[in-house]
Design a protein around this nucleic acid. Sequence first.
DNA 1: AACGCAGCCAACCGCCAAAGA
DNA 2: TTCTTTGGCGGTTGGCTGCGT
Length: 275
Amino acid sequence: MSSSSSSSSTDTKKGTWSKEEDEILKAYVEKHGTRNWNEVSKNAGLIRCGKSCRLRWYNHLQPDVKKGPFSEEEKSKVFEFYIKYGEFKWSKLAHELPGRSDNDIKNFWNARKRKLEKLGLSPFPDNMEPDHKLNSSQQVEDSQEDEFNIPQLKFRKYPSIFDEINEKLLDVPNMFYNNVGSTSTLIDRGSSIIGTSHIHIPIALPSPCSYLPLPSPMMLDENGKKPISLEDDFEANLDDFMDLIDFSNLEDDVEAGSRLFDNDDIYNSNLHDKI
DNA sequence: AACGCAGCCAACCGCCAAAGA
DNA sequence: TTCTTTGGCGGTTGGCTGCGT
């Protein structure tokens, strides 16, 4: 941040930490611990707010903090986390990467994402295929195999949900499938991942996941109090979960999709947008 | 050598939830 | 039960640095 070490109009200092401040904070925390950061700041004689002390400690001063470029193993863990949970939770991720702070991981990811997306590339590495993306040779094979076939869904965890959704798509008349791998993630109300899939869907149709109501109505336990996590007892809860899926728009979507395929210009522009 | 640009990264900000009074 | 304080988190900012021209 500011290199001016500027003081705010109040009584706390902002900006880059000096070596002296680091030494003071480190010595105090190693001796007294981190029970109350405002106390740490006050008792150590620092003119920094408690929050600032906490950040400095966790990001830079605590033992074992790791600096420098991310190793391949660390990068893999970051990517796997996203695939597993469908989103990034920096603090959770930091627990899986010993020595790395949430801020460090966030910076790594944001920098990578910005850089690669600028080039029109995915921030995920190619070697995550075929689990998470379809590679080009696989796309060719699949397109020959599937051109007039049903959408092919590949599942990692709970295939039955997508099987059910897939059945609803069987009636799609004479569709041309885009054969571009698309990853979708189903997340229940408690943010548990209940399924991740690679889907060949008709290009003009939304992902099966889009038929899920958002946010999903909450399913409660028998006492009506505790939300049920599908991951707790997936098979037992599957029927209830399927009841929540709203297919009322499917017919309209199919019709709209068919019209698109009747119009080459619209189809081509749609295809370009999707790839 | 000077300048401009882009990427990196430390640090701040604001929001929210939990804990405590 | 309500209010206040504190800690934690994610998003964002902007200074620093290295590289190219």
